[in-house]
Structures are given as C-alpha cells and as structure tokens.
Design a protein around this nucleic acid. Structure first.
Lengths: 213, 213
DNA sequence: GATCAATTCGAACGGCATTCGAAATCCGTC
DNA sequence: GACGGATTTCGAATGCCGTTCGAATTGATC
C-alpha cells in the first residue's frame, strides 16, 4: 500500500530523475511524461507518492543522500589523514564544497535534480513537510563543525557555523549563478575545471578561519 | 499598443507587486487574481505584457532598480567620505550587502518580489530574454570593482570579481536560506537585526580582501 | 477456485495561462 | 457633432495541467 519499494514506484522515481536531468526547465516535467517513461499512468504517481511534488521530493532526497555520503566520506578521509592532529583546513573545505562542484560540472551526474528541487521548494507549498525536511537537512553539515573547531579553536561553534554557512553560500553562487560568476570574473576563469574552481573557492573560504591579527 | 505606460498596465504591475509580496508561495499568484485586483481581465495581462511571466519580470525589474540605486548611493557615500584616499573596506561591503539584508528583514519592503523572481527564473523558459537580462544585470556590481581594487591593489580585477561574487553568494545564503542559517548557528544569532547581520557578514567577507601573509 | 487487499487504469474534474474575434473606447479630423 | 481607424477591453473558447474516483485487474492466501 502506497509503497516506495514497489517496482512501479521505483520505475517512476527513475523516470522522474532522468527527466529532471534532461529537462532544462522545470515546467517541462509533467506527470504524464513521467508516467509514459515509466510505462505507467499519472494516477500511479499519486497512488504511490501522493502527488507529483512528493515524487520529486523523494527523488531529490535519494540524490541528496548520494551527495552527502560523498561529502562525509571525504571529510572522514581528511580527518584520518592527519589524526590525531587537526585536519588540514583546505582539505576539509574541499570535502565540503568539492562534491557539489564536481557534480554540477559533470553532465552525467544527477545534479540537475538538486538544482531543480531547491528552486521548486521556494515556489511550492512551504507548509509541506517534504521540502523543509530535505532542504534543512543539515546533519551532514553539522559534522563539519567539530573538525573545523579543532582547526580554529579561537572560534566558538556559532562562529564556525556562521562561516560554514557562508562557505555554502559561495558554493551555491558558483553552482547556481554561473553566468553571473562568469561576468564578474571577466570570463577569465575556466569554470569548467572543477579542481580549479575548488582551489579558487578554498582561496576565499580559508581566510575566514584564520586567526585574526 | 502594448504600452507599459498605460494606466491599466501600471495598475497591473502594482497589483502584481502587491500580490507577490503578500503571497508566501509563488503558485498562489494567478493571472486572475492580478486581474481582479487591478480591475481588469487576464487578457489585459497578455495584451500589455505578452504573458504573465513577462509581467512579473517587469515588476521585478522595477523593484531591482530601486535596490540597485540604494546600493550605488551607499557606495558613492563610502567613496566620497574617504576621497581621495581609498574607501573603507567595511563600508564598501556594507554598501554591497546592506540594502539586500535590510530589505529582506523589512516586512514593508518589496523584497519578496525579488525572492520569488529569482526562484521563478530557474523554473521557467530559460531562452526568454526576460530573465537572464535581469538576473545577469551586474552593471551595478561591476561598479564595486574599481573601489575594491584601490583598497586591495595586490589583487587583480579577476580576483576582485571572484571575491565580489563570493560575497554575493554569502548574502544570498543569508537572505534565502534563513532556516538553514539558523540551524548552523545554533539559533544563537539574532538574524532579525539587520545591522548585526551585516556586521557579521563583514566579518567573513573582509578577510577575503586582506593582503596574504 | 474463491476471497480480499493491493495495484492499475481511464475517464472525468476543476483550474490554469493563453488565444482570439468581437465589442468598446479613444482621438484626431472633417 | 459625427466619422473612422487605431487602441484597448472583454468574454467565451482552447489546450494542458495535476489530481480524483470508481471500476477493472492483479496477486496472494486459504
């Protein structure tokens, strides 16, 4: 009953993820197209998920989990490499922003799902628990606070969180407002090279965590 | 003929701006509601603007102009106050991010228009010149580059633009992802006080422009 | 093979932005 | 003051959307 493990439900999620990646614009995605690609009917969407919106949220959550796992894996590596010393700041920042940057530049990734989802969350019913639950899922971000506190012990946890939040803002700007970034940097940066972009982001984020003079 | 100076066109824009501010969620805004509030019909929208989304774009552009004027006015003040010496870095940053922060926290402002518009631009036809033209309108941002270059002459213009872009990302994060910001800062920051928030933003943005050691 | 729940389907339904041809209004000219 | 062409308004379609709902189908259990 209303299962998410049903074969049809999985086919619907796969079709939705695929179409979400293909479609440049969110309004191209319709329940009927999803149904066709999944060899089902629009009714199946509402039967298995409750609404089209909820289906998209479920797909976004699935993709989100993959991204977060990659982030946390990199964070763990950064910590272990230097343990018991504090981790390297640059490496921690790369773990935080790297996966998003790489995904957003990899055409074969499912990054568009997240991109579309975040913009959708602002346009649709805010009360729905679908959105806030996923968007505000910051547990994986909170995991970055203790290692950063070890690196910059003169900052309290609120300061760390504030800087973490700022770093995420910079990342969003680069992934979401690419054309604006291009113009401001006079088209002189190769924004297609993820490692270069990550290095440039570290260049602006790391100073936030340095000891004030 | 399709005039934007027509009385009905102005009433439509005013109604649209008002409804855009009132409505929590973008999908609450319908052409029929706009028409009723403007004492017109939905057809009037397409007659005067071409489409509902073009109307919203026109409204957003109008609001955007007001915000940009405020930004540039503050920048001018910051420059004049120290001329012929370079402007104060903190003051320039406050000119860049201050107006957005104050507007976003002022319930009587039209900030929701911009908030809704930016999320709408991602969901609708990307080819339409409406959106990119407004979103990528960075002329007012480019005006910040020369003064910042005087403050940090060891950075080239691309570096300045990159940091400018990063600062804008931080600002967007604070204005758009408030709940996430709250969680990461452990609910210990008074995010309702614009001057406090601006000071905190300067705290993380200014170090980007400091001379590396 | 019967029973009952779980699932699928297809035909509605209401709402949406938009189209379009016909009215109505405006306005310079006679 | 009346005319006539352009401008503006209107209201009834049109087509698409997500969703609803009852009936048909399927599948497991006895």
């Amino acid at each position: 009953m209303h299962g998410r493990t049903n074969l049809t439900a999985i086919r619907l999620m796969d079709a939705c993820e695929h179409l979400l990646c293909e479609s440049e614009v969110l309004e191209e995605l319709t329940a009927r197209k999803i149904a066709v690609e999944a060899h089902a009917t629009p009714s199946a969407i509402v039967y298995h998920f409750g609404s089209q919106e909820a289906l998209i949220a479920a797909v976004a959550e699935r993709v989100y989990r993959r991204l977060n796992a990659e982030r946390l894996s990199l964070l763990r590596k950064a910590i272990d490499r230097r343990a018991p010393e504090p981790a390297d700041l640059d490496e921690v920042i790369a773990a935080l922003v790297g996966p998003s940057i790489r995904w957003s530049l990899d055409p074969s990734s499912s990054y568009p799902v997240l991109s579309h989802f975040t913009s959708m969350a602002k346009a649709h019913r805010e009360g729905g628990p679908h959105y806030r639950k996923i968007i505000d899922n910051v547990e994986h971000h909170l995991a970055f606070i203790p290692p950063l506190k070890r690196i910059a012990p003169w900052l309290d946890e609120v300061d760390i969180g504030w800087r973490l939040n700022s770093a995420l803002g910079i990342r969003s700007q680069v992934t979401r407002s690419r054309s604006r970034t291009e113009i401001l940097t006079n088209h002189s940066m190769n924004l297609d090279d993820p490692e270069f972009v990550i290095a440039r982001m570290i260049e602006v984020i790391a100073p936030m965590f340095r000891r004030p003079i």
